[in-house]
Design a protein around this nucleic acid. Structure first.
Lengths: 159, 159
DNA sequence: TTTAATCTTGACTTTTTTGTACAATTAAAT
DNA sequence: ATTTAATTGTACAAAAAAGTCAAGATTAAA
């Protein structure tokens, strides 16, 4: 369970574009330089963002990228899904269950139901965070206060 | 951000061993058959579990595997870390920051601080769940109640 | 109309992860 | 002692993900 390179850099590219949208957008060359990844790789990542409606592009001289929506309207959950997919695939059992008719991954699928629970937790957090939160320096760390103010996340005993 | 195959099957192997510890343990051949993965792959996964102190092995005829600790003492957070590592590596910036002295992954590292927040959330959940929770069928879904009883995770507005 | 900056696309290479094979080791039972 | 059933460790092969490259298409300004 790792944050993939594509997620890491994809988010960073989006952040770069977000920061510069107000001043006319930015180019692949600029993003590339700022994030220290190659232009080719940058292009690939930005392409994913564009095809999924997060950024808009204009071609030709003086072209470049801007956000396609307001930062507050871009949920990180959506971005993550596009860049790295869900935590576990539905249809996982189809691939891996071997030749059994029903999911022999068994355990009455306790395991899978647990994966779902983890995913719910993540989704809730990611859907409450927008690009705006990452862009605004004063918004740095609203999540920490959430954590400490929270019964579940704050060493609550469970029974 | 996906659950890796090693995490998925590693947990399942541990679960198999846990279930059969009371009745004398189990073997790689049995686990392999139950989870429908090859014996070789099973051996590899179980080895990781053994080297990290989750299971004990005995060799020779009538050998096999048992839990090294009580199920209630095995936090899933620990197991996950061993099987799949942390969500993002410390030292990530060392690898990817290029030739800059300081982490040029910049953004005043808002991004990284956000990764940390996500990891905290995950860790809290995973450290509150033990193998016992997965083993006990009646314990199915204590996490769902947690979710719905929870302000942060239940569509709480944040400001 | 020319030019230069920029995006767009698909194929290719490298790296990482995942899975497999096989020989060596151990211990109980006979 | 020998046989048998099991674990252990290393090295290798296959698959997936990440990253690179090169040629093409589009646009705006000079």
């Amino acid at each position: 369970m790792k944050i993939s390179a594509q997620e890491e850099y994809g988010i960073r590219c989006l952040l770069q574009i977000g920061r510069r949208t107000a001043t006319g957008g930015t180019t692949i060359a600029e993003i590339s330089k700022a994030e220290r990844i190659t232009p080719s790789n940058t292009a690939k990542l930005v392409r994913i963002l564009r095809m999924n409606g997060f950024v808009a592009s204009s071609r030709g001289k003086d072209g470049g990228y801007t956000l396609a929506r307001a930062p507050g309207e871009i949920k990180l959950g959506e971005v993550f899904e596009v860049l790295g997919g869900k935590l576990f695939d539905v249809g996982f059992c189809d691939h891996y269950a071997g030749s059994a008719d029903v999911c022999s991954h068994n355990d009455h699928c306790t395991v899978r139901s647990f994966w779902c629970a983890i995913q719910s937790v993540l989704d809730h957090v990611l859907d409450q965070t927008t690009l705006e939160h990452l862009m605004d320096p004063t918004g740095l760390g609203w999540w920490e206060t959430c954590l400490t103010a929270n019964p579940l996340l704050n060493s609550a005993p469970r029974t």
